[in-house]
């Protein structure tokens, strides 16, 4: 991870650059994940107790009633055919436990799924693609990809992020374990989940529904900022792009190739929607939905032939000349 951070050519100023690398669902950092955590502890406790009791019974029975020696082979133990009372007991007990589980489950389902979104909730719309995430910020009118920036929620300032989930092709699933459970992105349908992060940093997640060749490299990062820092990030994203004259050749190569059919760069003729929006490419930590850190070498490799880093990716080898690759990479690196 350290090398990845060093490799970042552009890192946005972050007061807390903690990367929560281990996405442990038992270390929740967001309200809905904490609610799940709470109920899961209860369930674990109940199951743990049952496990200990039944295992003890099993071990005791095997040890106590195992046959000793072979001398008494022909003497059978007393033949017991059943006992209504005992059977009733071990029918009723599980029913009681089940009732408890049902009640807490129903409550938590309602609390998480039917939670009222505050009026000032940040709305984002995530569209799943084979094998990357398109992220819309309709409140601020810009689009990014694969890395979702959201504000921190605190006791003094509650900030909830409401995520609408859609898919452009097959089914995907949005899962950042420390922030919430997973919800699928299903074509022809809009699903919802909400996040309310309680500590800053970068959270890792994955697509959790098998979606084809590069399912494994459909990774997800959620970066939680304090509100003022988030506002600044939004301003960066909204800033009008300019073409640096130094990379004019790269720009020309970019717009004269079929790059523009799939990618968007605001303020240029590039308005394709099949691939990730590149307007602020250099503000992202990784490329290829987390397949590699966003540094010059990887970017070069990607532009030359995406199939090297991410075999099966839908962006084909563009068969560019070396010089064209250099020019385009130089241009792309000005997109920040």
């Amino acid at each position: 991870m350290a090398c990845m951070l060093i490799g970042l050519t552009t890192a946005i100023a972050q007061s807390d650059s903690t990367v929560h690398e281990v996405a442990n669902m038992f270390e929740p950092k967001s309200t809905p994940a904490e609610m799940i955590h709470e109920i899961s502890l209860l369930v674990l406790l109940i199951c743990g107790v049952i496990f200990v009791i039944v295992t003890t019974l099993l071990v005791y029975t095997v040890l106590r009633f195992r046959r000793r020696g072979s001398g008494d082979d022909h003497e059978e133990p007393p033949q017991v055919y059943g006992s209504t009372q005992i059977e009733l007991a071990w029918t009723v007990l599980p029913i009681l436990i089940t009732v408890v589980l049902i009640l807490v489950t129903a409550r938590t389902i309602g609390e998480i799924q039917d939670a009222e979104m505050p009026a000032d909730a940040l709305n984002i719309r995530v569209v799943g693609h084979q094998w990357w995430w398109e992220v819309h910020y309709p409140d601020y009118d810009f689009v990014t990809a694969n890395e979702i920036h959201i504000p921190l929620s605190s006791a003094t300032e509650r900030r909830v992020t409401h995520v609408a989930l859609e898919s452009a092709d097959v089914i995907h699933s949005f899962w950042v374990p420390q922030l919430n459970g997973k919800t699928d992105l299903v074509p022809n349908r809009t699903n919802h989940l909400w996040l309310e992060p309680t500590s800053t940093g970068t959270y890792l997640g994955n697509c959790a529904e098998y979606c084809g060749t590069q399912h494994a490299n459909m990774q997800l990062r959620v970066i939680v900022h304090p509100p003022d820092e988030f506002a600044e990030w939004v301003r960066t994203q909204q800033a009008a792009p300019t073409v640096d004259p130094a990379v004019a050749r790269g720009y020309d190569t970019f717009v004269s190739n079929s790059c523009v059919n799939c990618h968007t760069v605001n303020g240029t003729v590039a308005d394709g929607v099949f691939g990730p929006d590149l307007t602020k490419l250099m503000t992202r930590q990784t490329i290829g939905a987390g397949v590699a850190p966003n540094d010059t070498a990887n970017l070069r490799s990607w532009v030359r032939d995406p199939q090297v880093l991410k075999p099966g990716a839908l962006m084909p080898d563009m068969k560019l000349l070396d010089s064209e690759v250099d020019d385009i990479v130089a241009y792309l690196q000005t997109l920040k």
Partner: peptide, 9 residues
């Protein structure tokens, strides 16, 4: 079977 836990698992 606990649906919220299932959303994680």
């Amino acid at each position: 079977s606990v649906a919220p836990f299932n959303w994680q698992l």
